[in-house]
Nucleic acid binder design. Structure first.
Lengths: 220, 220
DNA sequence: GTTTGTGAAGGATTTCACAGCA
DNA sequence: TGCTGTGAAATCCTTCACAAAC
């Protein structure tokens, strides 16, 4: 925790540590299962028990956690409540994040109405669309703004995450606008491989591609 | 192609080949970009051009393709139309697939109404919900059935893919029912790590987890 | 000249296996 | 005894580099 100490626990700055991306991507999984265990009243958990639930080897779980500190007790395992708090801190989930969404078509409306983001600390505080007929209308309590307002709104409202739900043909331009506005992370629902600078994180959600790789194994 | 020949091209049976999963997961990406190139009228493409568009090294693309055959011509690259046809065949995308969806809440309705599946050959031919108030109603032209009908409907309608859009608490039971019914692939939108037998493929879509790993890099 | 296909090298990730501690 | 944390080993994946083909 304390900056300047010998490295034993994580100091909060990703740049100081070189943690593989694959490890970071598994942390939310640990947060989820630990949160469930905590609400069940489970006090301590071993890496083996976690592995059973997550279909992972205990060794991988221990190794992953060891990138950030020593959270367990030999012979006993991990304290569920303490570990979930640590992991949330590491991931930056001990605060809330403002997001905006671009594209208020069918998909965008479904996303903005999805009740699963807010309880996890992600607030969609602004919505944009290119269609002047939509601008000014309200969707689920959020006023739809013109794309030209992205720059102003992102800095004004402290928005660090952009959600892209526009057609493929518009996606790169929208993503460029979000990057220009200073966004740091993008959740992209458009079926494109977008170009972003190194300092911007992007994740793609494409159910069609997920299905398309599973059919490989379905064939007979 | 021809069974019994020396191995030069892919014979259609995944079991005969040991292709890393990561490679299979990239094939739909190639299909997508090649399809775009084809509709632009592009005739030939090199691994370097593909790499530029996909942010991958040309070597990785060539290596990936080499698991399945020799599709390129030295000095010229790949024929766009021919390669996309080959890859679609390998992935089983040269036919259409029947899917069902379980859970007709907000999310399930959005998914069943999503117009992106059908053009890619995925037809949602049945919908299920546990709520008796919903059973018998129509959602986007599909009649909602009771969960007890899963077994019968899956075999009757030749359904090989199940889409799960139920609350976390119901997900494992629904997935068990789909597996029992003989489904081979599951697209799971519920925030759980589900247990499935080895012969069933499952992919999870969880936008919250995607956001939760990106915040790691956002902090300052 | 250009670009593929591919063994070999290099790098990244996972698993092993055990010392050390409760 | 039970379980963590971690170097070392093993495995998996990517990149290199070049002969062969056009």
């Amino acid at each position: 925790m304390a900056t300047g100490s010998l490295i034993t626990t994580y100091d909060g700055d990703p740049d100081n540590l070189d943690v593989p991306d694959v490890v970071v991507e598994r942390l939310p999984l640990y947060v989820r299962v630990l949160t469930n265990l905590a609400s069940d009243g489970t006090d301590m958990v071993s890496s083996e028990q976690l592995g059973d639930q997550l279909h992972m080897t205990p060794a991988q779980i221990r190794k992953d956690l060891s990138y950030f500190g020593r959270f367990g007790k030999q012979g006993r395992g991990y304290n569920v409540v303490a570990l979930v708090a640590q992991l949330k801190g590491i991931l930056g989930l001990d605060r809330s994040w403002n997001a905006c969404i671009v594209g208020m078509g069918r998909l965008g409306r479904a996303i903005i109405s999805y009740p699963g983001f807010a309880p996890e600390g992600f607030k969609i505080v602004a919505a944009f669309d290119a269609d002047d007929g939509l601008v000014g209308t309200n969707v689920d309590g959020t006023r739809v703004r013109s794309l030209s307002q992205i720059n102003h709104t992102v800095s004004e409202d402290g928005i660090s995450i952009g959600i892209v739900a526009v057609p493929a043909s518009a996606a790169q331009a929208v993503i460029d606008a979000l990057v220009d506005a200073g966004i740091g992370a993008i959740l992209n629902y458009a079926p494109v491989t977008a170009h972003v600078p190194d300092h911007v994180k992007i994740k793609n959600i494409d159910p069609v591609m997920s299905l398309q790789s599973m059919t490989y194994y379905l064939k007979r």
